[in-house]
Nucleic acid binder design. Structure first.
Lengths: 334, 334
DNA sequence: CTTTGTCCAAAAATGCCTTCATGTTTTTCC
DNA sequence: GGAAAAACATGAAGGCATTTTTGGACAAAG
């Protein structure tokens, strides 16, 4: 079934079929019906390749994601995909892992596939050193690049971020106000948003007059291995580090902190406070349930897609949008 | 930059450039070099559409997934994507949600995109009523269809499943042997694998002489809402149902059972046993850690991809492969 | 009856690559 | 040295839909 077959069956020209398909200019209702009927009856679908060749677009957006089994990223991908589909776009998902070369390769792959835009979910795509972000600028020379939770000021690159600095600042402030002073900051990524979070924490601690670099602690193992995170905390304590609260850059780390405290025989939240980040499903898995920061991911994703649609439609769109998070108070803080 | 430009720059015909690109038949090393140099120098990438039009394939596999933010499915997608990429294929991911029409629509969409095959992750794609599976058979008429954790005996449909019946049978048997007799079966899906699991549980209970349909309980709320699951269990108890163990069809349900038991003041595992399914990250989030069934997801995915590659290469491949799971004993059972 | 405008057919150009049949060069071997 | 075989390269024909141009048919308006 090609457009030729349909034009023959419907007794119209191929140009008319094409016009009906692309909903463009004037086609009389009668002709449209004839064509639609034929399409229906013979079950015709336009050849995507030929179409792409003609239109130079396939209505497909590329999504890059380091690891779709990460809770937060998975949700982001889910929301984005859903909303793109609602706008008539499809997605190609590439899980790159955390290796820089893989990211570049995936990016090129997507560009090669002629996607209409690329969405980078997660701040790990933007690096500290400028030349490492070259690949993003290069990509942006060819198509719009959307950044979720990362910022890069380049032409044709749009950033949608949650205000991680303020969120962390507030989380730390909140915990300080309950009287906990020796708060351990437990994080696992030095990415853009990771830095913002850390900065927010530091700012709050300095302001309160308790800055202590020893209490800033990075965990670099597997992002899923709660047990190893717990062991990490235990080791810190055994090495003489004293802390009665943990603020984590992610709920999984926070959950590990809860586990650690329980094993250490500390009561939560009386003796020990924990605040997580992302307000993921894990928040409710914990016992007691985690206080956590909700980044309004769905709103971010919605905004990202809306912005992208604007960009693709040729409108001038804001290059950067910041959304504030919300501290959800649950059982691990006073 | 088109193939014409390159052929001109390299001083050869476009056919030669094409052959170099496709690494096919005889091209002299000298010519190859000339072409490669030109490609390198001018930074040429073949137009994917034109290429697709010529080859009628884009080396892309469609993945259907009800919800990529489901822990198990997300991991499946991750493994599959990784392994496909290692084989030179890309993926288009469609998250369909659980509505039947959306599944059909997504399937058609993928076929329209001319993917080389479709992978259905999760047993929710196969329904009880035969006519509901029509869309799979229709799809299989055009391209290979791979089923993860579901079975459908149709031409060109391949199934890779974990042996849910046996796993559940073993899980129940194990718990019975520790002396727990009033085991509640807590599940949320009547999908293919859901049925197998249930059947396995029933078989074990009947064999042991304690069949009790009242203890088979379905939860139909959100798959992420642990709190609501917990409340559900509490309500059951309040309604007079008596049980000292829970076997769940998923770790999240199991986690809810753990939460419930704690709130009810029951000691785990002394007074109350819990066994989950999928051995997900949640298993270790729980306190104590969940006993759970590991379905060897990575092995399943590896096998799925291997089978698919075989099918695409035109080899005769097994239509169905069953892998046995493994009961991972942790802190919620004796 | 002419003008004007709408709708559509037919045909051709365009996009870019693959591939087959054909042509040309090089190698091989007596 | 020359013919046959092997190796390599070319030209042109697809593949399918979009878009533009030209012009025909028809209806309403002047």
């Amino acid at each position: 079934m090609t457009i030729y077959d349909i034009s023959e069956k419907a007794g119209v020209s191929i140009a008319t079929v094409s016009r009906v398909l692309n909903g463009s200019s004037r086609v009389s209702e009668k002709t449209r019906q004839k064509v639609m009927d034929a399409i229906e009856r013979y079950g015709y679908t336009p050849n995507a390749f030929a179409r792409g060749l003609g239109l130079n677009t396939m209505k497909t957006i590329g999504i890059l994601c380091a690891d779709s089994s990460d809770l937060y990223l998975a949700k982001a991908v889910y929301y984005i995909e859903q909303k793109l589909r609602a706008n008539g776009y499809d997605c190609i998902l590439c899980c790159t892992g955390y290796e820089p070369e893989a990211k570049v390769a995936s990016m090129n792959l997507l560009i090669g596939k002629k996607v209409d835009a690329v969405i980078l979910t997660g701040s790990n795509f933007v690096h500290d050193r400028n030349e490492d972000n070259r690949y993003i600028a290069d990509a942006a020379a060819q198509l719009p690049v959307m950044l979720l939770n990362a910022v890069l000021d380049r032409p044709n690159v749009y950033s949608i971020v949650s205000d991680d600095f303020s969120s962390m600042y507030e989380a730390a402030g909140q915990m300080l106000r309950t009287g906990v002073r020796d708060i351990l900051y437990f994080y696992n990524s030095g990415s853009y948003s990771g830095q913002k979070k850390l900065a927010g924490f530091r700012a709050a601690m300095e302001e309160a007059g308790f800055p202590d670099e020893r209490l800033i602690c990075r965990y670099s193992g597997s992002r899923e291995d709660i047990l190893s995170m717990t062991a990490h905390l235990k080791r810190l304590r055994e090495n003489g580090l004293c802390f009665h609260g943990v603020i984590a850059s992610d709920d999984s780390l926070a959950l590990a902190a809860v586990k650690y405290a329980k094993q250490a025989g500390l009561r939560i939240p009386e003796d020990f406070s924990v605040t997580g980040y992302n307000n993921s499903m894990l928040s409710c898995c914990s016992d007691p349930e985690l206080t956590s920061i909700d980044t309004r991911l769905e709103t971010l994703c919605q905004h990202l897609v809306t912005t992208l649609m604007g960009v693709l439609a040729g409108n001038e769109m804001p290059k950067k949008a910041v959304f504030s998070g919300e501290l959800i108070h649950r059982g691990t803080t006073r």
